[in-house]
Design a binder for these strands. Structure first.
Lengths: 212, 212
DNA sequence: TAGATTGTTAATCGATTAACAATC
DNA sequence: TAGATTGTTAATCGATTAACAATC
């Protein structure tokens, strides 16, 4: 069954909500409830759940624990993929320290930086290697995912090295458009885009509800 | 003229691309070129540009400098909005050090943290205040945008304080669903969602192009 | 049985793409 | 003038929502 990016993006929200419910609360949960709490249409929620889980029961709803397990499996949280991160500055550190990635099926195995003061040190339990070793180490450990957390001017160079090392997916935090071969996928974490959307939402809200 | 979130998200990419062109290069640029470089449909690009700019010339294209100015104006990069950031840990620091926000029309005026060691210090030129002062200072300085960069368990509390302080837009980096009044807008920077999309793109690419 | 809820089929809506006229 | 490019109108596509049948 195929799933759209929009639908896919909602799945982790369902999981997050389901996990926030008290352990000793009701065993079952309805799509109506999920939809209401997350501000979504209930049919949409049911359709999304139909893709990831194996169904609920009319009048009963979905078994919460089962649904959690289904979503975690669907999202691959039960078998982590290895990743490397390039750039051990504030952003890189923040990402490594974030810690939740393992929960999200992403296992950061190493970091790279060009700063001699950082090379050889450990951050959040991960070794920081010389950026010159990207290709060699990615190949050696068969890593498929690279996270780019370097300043924009260095991002394309870093990206090229990652690809030379056999990386097939890039999570790009640098505010720049990367050029990659067709078989490499890029997901941009585009702060400027987010900010543009936030600004517009704010402007509309101020118009609709007034300044106070 | 109204603009969709999808279209809005593309606008900063155009700007970024236009600015990456050499200063002493051609004066004009065509939608065809922009579309090709960014991997978009050319009609889409023209429609987007029609919303933000005041037109190009058949056979000539768009004046690059004018288009840059139009986009910057449209995105509000020429009149910054004040914002505060809550959480001066790694992520908060990374966001403050990022520096580009001012370019993007966002002026971070202060940070808040609960850590006594940080309170009173300066990070990237911004004072870190006690988290207890959020409401008071947001009111005083009439700040409308709050950035949440605290751990998930604290996010809702912080959010409530920001709203009490008159904040109307929240940029949320905590992996949690925030509950807010109707007039407050929230933009989630949802890492789990991004990661889910990246994973799926990777899986599809591996299927389509093979493992190597 | 009656009501609540799931799941599916049809309708709607909005965004993207295609076709093409306008024009420098 | 001819060709390239913009800008607009129509067609397509996909996602969301509405209607409703199935069922515990």
């Amino acid at each position: 069954m195929s799933i759209s990016k929009a639908a896919l993006s909602r799945i982790p929200r369902y999981l997050n909500f389901l996990k926030s419910l008290p352990e000793d609360g009701p065993v079952n949960i309805s799509s109506t409830m999920i939809a209401e709490k997350l501000g979504l249409n209930q049919v949409l929620v049911r359709k999304d759940i139909a893709i990831v889980g194996n169904g609920g029961k009319p009048k009963i709803g979905y078994n919460r624990a089962e649904l959690i397990a289904d979503i975690e499996h669907f999202l691959g949280y039960d078998h982590a993929s290895d990743a490397v991160i390039v750039g051990a500055g504030n952003l890189g550190k923040a990402l490594m320290a974030y810690g939740n990635f393992k929960k999200y099926g992403l296992n950061i195995v190493a970091a790279f930086d060009q700063n001699p003061k950082l090379i050889g040190s450990k951050i959040a339990g991960k070794y920081v290697y010389d950026i010159a070793k990207i290709e060699e180490l990615c190949r050696k450990f068969k890593v498929r995912i690279g996270i780019i957390a370097v300043p924009a001017p260095e991002a394309q160079t870093v990206c090229n090295h990652l690809i030379d090392g056999g990386i097939r997916a890039i999570w790009n935090f640098a505010p720049i458009n990367l050029y990659v071969p067709k078989k490499v996928v890029v997901k941009n974490e585009d702060m400027a885009a987010s900010l543009a959307v936030l600004s517009k939402m704010l402007t509309e809200s101020l118009q609709q509800y007034g300044e106070d």
